[in-house]
Design a protein around this nucleic acid. Sequence first.
RNA 1: GCUGCCGUAGCUCAGUGGUAGAGCACUCCAUUGGUAAUGGAGAGGUCGAAAGUUCAAUCCUUUCCGGCAGCACCA
Length: 655
Amino acid sequence: MVAVTFPDGARREYPANTTGLDIAKGISPSLAKRTVAMALDGVSMDLADPIEQDAKIEFLTRDDPRALELIRHDAAHVMAEAVQALWPGTQVTIGPVIDNGFFYDFHRNAPFTPEDLPVIEKKMREIIAKDAPFTKEVWPREEAKRVFKDKGETFKVELVDAIPPGQDLKIYRQGEWFDLCRGPHMTSTGKIGNAFKLQKVAGAYWRGDSNNPMLTRIYGTAFAKQEELDLHLKQIEEAEKRDHRKLGREMDLFHFQEEGPGSVFWHPNGWTIFQEIVAYMRRRLKGDYREVNAPQLLDKSLWETSGHWGWFRENMFMAQSAGDHTEDERVFAIKPMNCPGHVQIFKHGLRSYRELPLRMAEFGVVHRYEPSGALHGLMRVRAFTQDDAHVFCTEEQMADECLKINDLILSTYTDFGFEGDLTVKLSTRPEKRVGSDEAWDHAEGIMQEVLQRIAKSNNRIKTAINPGEGAFYGPKFEYVLRDAIGRDWQCGTTQVDFNLPERFEAFYIAADGSKKAPVMIHRAICGSMERFLGILLENYAGHLPLWLAPVQAVVTTITSDADDYAREIHAACIRAGLRAELDVRNEKINYKVREHSLAKVPALLVAGKKEAAERTVSIRRLGSDGQQVMPLDAALAALANEAVAPDLRRVQNAA
RNA sequence: GCUGCCGUAGCUCAGUGGUAGAGCACUCCAUUGGUAAUGGAGAGGUCGAAAGUUCAAUCCUUUCCGGCAGCACCA
């Protein structure tokens, strides 16, 4: 006998191997009918699974949040059946549930096209309508291999081989069709419902390895209810609307063109935002950091010493004299990182322990040859500006420096309006690395301790470990912020480096007169300024806070009678330190409002005859329909106050 | 880099084996209007590049360049 505890706390005994379905039926046929799966002690299972030991049971309906995964997984199976029915000879591989849906990878000579998707969807609806039960069988390993081999499913044979010995090989059937799968599944295909959609086709490497053949992947999503699916599709649309590449065009911020793949042409508006961010960072560095600038082009030998030529070469640009008749054959690399340059500055002259920690910052432009397929607007470029810094310190100072950096990173994100969850991930030693295991043990140990202190210091912070994701020269923290629509972005990083100073034989004179290698901490807050700007744009959907907006106000007129007054307002805006433009074009006010609204100008200062007579201004704020008439002086004072950067406001408030 | 799709005016996109079209933007003219598109006229393109097939290529083929989605990568 097994004892089963129900959600209401009731406990009943059943003969061993009674199934969940038996129990549900025993309670009521309607319960059995609407139950799609069960959870035993919180673990989702097939409803038809026998209950082998005492457990808490829950019957999952379609509406249970835990059933969503099952709906999607079942949909993936049905999609695979549909595809094989439509295109016999297509091999199936794997089809897992992912964050917002599911996919299934197929092997087929001709890839799928988007036009195939509605056809597959139609077939899926037919299969779902048949409502065939999902049934599970456990097959002997050899039989499974033979069956799949006979069917020509060579990828499945590989999957069977990959299942650790001793584990059951489960086969799920739905009508005629079956698939190797670890389950669980719902009771029948009809439970999937019709709130699903196939979204896109894409290539994907077999087992995620770029050495393997490429399969065709079909992505889809499914929900319990049509309204949920509609909402989800709507959200995707919304996210597309705030695509920074689109906003960049609309707001006239930047552009890309063929001759400079992955390199940004910054327009005046975009560069204004960029410089505003840099100015903010500079203010935050004041007092602690010294800003430097290291060469863009350095001899290859320096990169050999640093290890980049060995480890990073694929991502580096090389440069030589372009002259036809030059005898100078020297090979230079365009810097992909600032650190070797900073070590040279550290090394110039004798350093004393008294100078440590020595914090060296640079808004350095680095170039990296990123794979063409990785390029993506401002988010992934080949030339970008890092808000980079290197802290040279003693080992004893290291933990404190990491914490100090942590404070700077957190407050910076808050100032830029990222107030949601933050994750700090510790990335540990990668396979390709320099330095001894002892050095790595040591560095990771310290980082681990710091991570715990960071976690305790602030309840916004979640922590995680990324095994094997560290830099080739040392472990690192990665700071991941969450934007307004819930997407995570890795921006800041703190990396501990015991290697580079040693490679360059950098040292300082310690208190006892001996030479010691400093510890080097690499640190970035925004990471890439270009990317950070892109993230900001998407976070705010282009509606930047006033202090970041490239054009903070446009002064415009109802009729040309007010032109002179508008000029006066504009001049007053400039005096008040606002980035303001004047628009006295002979256009209707509707037209001008529309145009500046589309350009995401935060404040529109409108002057007509009435305003000119009363020395007021009609203010229309981006995103609101109405307007407010205010005395000019008061309006400008309010705007100027709003435009104060958050860090400067802190200073003001403290005074 | 890989797979698929795409590349026509500044932007968004039609279109055809016989060297091109719309809307918006731009220029000019008229219009002086109260908060998301005033009307008219004009100008604007080696149809991504090169080679090939063809009497003829923007259209078909190949290669290259660039973009998009996903995968891989993000040291």
